[in-house]
């Protein structure tokens, strides 16, 4: 099947029902997207399908044919990191970092839908698990990114 990922076309010979997660990770070596549960519970495997956040551990790869897939590797454009990524640095969000690709993809999708989300919007949209407990900084970083006028410099360091 042919998949369009981060603006590139990839050809893969896989079972139709192989979850997109494993096509990305094992067939294409796009390992930024993580496995955490395999049952759509933790959000580690979140990518965008035509701009909408989806959990790929339960999504058959064939269901993404003809759609534009964006992974964490694809959110920086022209060598420039996104407002969410800038805010993530400013707030020093990641600890172990394993859940962060999924968190960032969920946050990117939220901001696209709601450019200035309330705390309630964040509670509703960000249901990912972070075992390290970075939630408070994730929330703060989303608010910062919402106010980003493309020119935020890190607050620390």
């Amino acid at each position: 099947m042919e998949l369009s990922i981060n603006g590139r076309i990839y050809k893969v010979e896989v079972e139709e029902h192989m979850p997109l997660l494993w096509v990305l990770r094992d067939e294409l070596n796009l390992t930024g997207t993580k496995y955490g549960c395999g049952v759509a519970s933790c959000g580690s495997c979140t990518v965008h399908l035509d701009g909408v956040a989806v959990r790929t551990c339960t999504l058959p790869a064939s269901a993404s044919i003809g759609k534009e897939i964006t992974t964490v590797e694809g959110i920086s454009r022209d060598g420039k990191i996104s407002a969410i990524q800038r805010a993530w640095i400013a707030h020093q969000v990641p600890q172990c970092g394993y859940c962060q690709s999924g968190m960032i993809m969920a946050a990117e999708a939220l901001l696209r839908e709601k450019p200035d989300p309330t705390d309630e919007d964040i509670d509703q949209a960000i249901t990912n698990i972070c075992r390290c407990g970075t939630y408070q900084r994730v929330r703060a970083a989303i608010h910062t990114a919402a106010k980003d006028d493309e020119d935020v410099s890190p607050v620390i360091g």
Partner: peptide
């Protein structure tokens, strides 16, 4: 001081065992 591992952990390039 800013974490030395932060940039790798926001663009998917940090390498975990998996």
């Amino acid at each position: 001081v800013q974490r030395l591992d932060v940039v790798e952990k926001i663009d998917g390039s940090a390498e975990f065992g998996l």
